[in-house]
Amino acid sequence: MTTQDLQVKEKKEQLQERGEKTEVGRYFVPLTDIHESSDALFVTMDMPGVRKENVDIHLEKNALTVTGNIDFSNYEDLRPIYTEYSIGNFTRSFTLSSRINKEGISAKMVDGVLALYLPKVKEAAAMKIEVT
């Protein structure tokens, strides 16, 4: 694998297409990777500044919504003098194509990255079909 230099990506703001937020303040869209194995979906989201206790994961039918709130108390007594990015809470929703076993969902937060493990319901797991 070739290593390249990382580029700055301007944080994308969450537009209020899917219903208004009840809280004020801007929400950002976390950069996300989604991978699938034969029996699970893996969702990985960049949420810098979010602690694991401030993450809310909501799955209803096949609509997955993840919200992460930043710990704003870190910024108490700080006065901005030069800035290149804004801070705010993160939110993003996905419609999952596979049925997920809700009880088996697990999540972990390491270095500001949220990793979600969403196991598929057994019958939805990929089957190899033999042609005779």
């Binding site: 700055v8 960049d46 949420m47 810098p48 500044g49 910024y75 007594d77 700080l78 006065r79 901005p80 003098i81 030069y82 800035t83 290149e84 990015y85 801070i87 270095d111 500001g112 990255v113």
Partner: peptide, 19 residues
């Protein structure tokens, strides 16, 4: 990306480096 803040007499630099 870096944000620079003033905290009393000192400066605080915050960089976003998730992962």
């Amino acid at each position: 990306p870096i944000n620079v803040f003033e905290k009393g007499e000192d400066c605080v630099l915050v960089a976003e480096l998730p992962g």
